[in-house]
Amino acid sequence: MQDFHTIPVQIADGDNSQAFFSYQPATTLVVFVHGFKGSALGTWDDFPEAVTNDADFAHTDFIFYGYDTLSASASFHATAFKKFLERCVHPLAGKVLPATQGLPERVYTSIILVAHSLGALVVRQAVVMACKQDAAWLPKISLLLFAPAHTGARVQKLAKEVLSGWTALISPFVTYQYPVYEDLEPGSQFIATLVDETKKLLADKKYPCNIARKVIWAERDRVVSQINFCDDPDAELVYKKNHVNVCKPDATYTQPVDFLKELLHQ
């Protein structure tokens, strides 16, 4: 029996974003950000059920952030996400947590951003932007990145890999007609700028949040370039998984949840 969280609460920001707020005083916020042609929840499969039924996460709030990947550039999505994140830090005051849920304001000590594929670009760029503004909440941030596209992705393969859902059937008909495709190309202007800005911030040693806490690579990933990003640690390797299913826990594949728990307990 689920005892720890609210029902999925609709979030006005993004595209079908949803949140589970702990009934307990929450100290950690986990925000999930999907990748190319993913969706707020579909990308993560059994993640919502697994974490809301787990006592380890009883004091953790979860937000599954959605955005229409085809609608705009990665920069646009990153800016929108950063603005949203600013309101999540105090979710009641930021009107992310509805007052009618009757829950108190949160005082988070940790904010974990979990991203898949393109989501890693969105999240990293949002954090870089926050660093430029010296946001007070940056020390709380840590990154958990599944199959990140932060060093680029092979777009043709991406279109084919995600061809397992209905809406993904759209992608082959519109390849290269959307700005986010350009952003995903290895060596794109977006990625080059992101790397450059991250290096500068890391050189100042003031914002360690730009170093991912965990990066997960899938053995059968043929989509993203598996190259270390700046000062990120060596990737954790997951075998017999591909680009799409590496972040999808199920009854037999629990590693994604375990990775999150490791960050939670650090």
Partner: peptide
């Protein structure tokens, strides 16, 4: 309860 959550979502 996960079934109900899935349904709502």
């Amino acid at each position: 309860t996960g079934l109900f959550y899935n349904f709502l979502m």
